[in-house]
């Protein structure tokens, strides 16, 4: 069973917010003893998803949780926004697809960097992306 050990949330409203958000995620990752490669992957994933919030929804929120399952601990990040939503999630998850002016690596690339990836989106209501990285994952 997945247990939440601690919780922290941050709001994302402007471009500069990506810096404290990355720092906060890194701090928590260091605190649970995550190795440097996994830390870097998680922080990079967070950076991609914060950018998506800013680009497509203007503002949103990030929830940072330390979770555990059995003897394994990890970090779960939830990125939620009340933006336009994604009409075709399968298409958005394809490498190279983008409705914005980007490389289209954000979502599929992020998925490769973490252990668990979940995306829920309703057109006109918003998008919630949840990622989980195990300490030794």
């Amino acid at each position: 069973m997945l247990m939440t050990l601690s919780k922290d949330s941050m709001s994302i409203t402007r471009e500069q917010d990506v810096v404290p958000c990355r720092n906060r995620v890194k701090e928590v990752a260091v605190k649970i003893g995550m190795g440097i490669v996994n830390q870097t992957k998680l922080v990079t994933a967070a950076s991609e998803l914060v950018r998506n919030i800013l680009r497509y929804a203007d503002s949103g929120e990030v929830l940072i949780e330390v979770v555990s399952k059995g003897r394994e601990s990890g970090i779960r990040l939830t990125f939620s926004d009340k933006g336009p939503g994604i009409a075709d999630i399968n298409l958005a998850m394809q490498d190279g697809y983008s409705t914005g002016r980007s490389l289209g690596l954000g979502l599929p690339g992020t998925k490769r960097l973490v252990n668990e990836f979940d995306i829920k989106s309703t057109v006109g209501q918003g998008t919630v992306v949840t990622i989980l990285k195990w300490k030794n994952g």
Binding site: E48, T110, R112
Partner: peptide
């Protein structure tokens, strides 16, 4: 480039 950054970049697809 730090090694962890190199690993992450390639996995990201860049």
């Amino acid at each position: 480039m730090q090694p962890a950054v190199a690993i992450t970049l390639i996995e990201l697809g860049l």
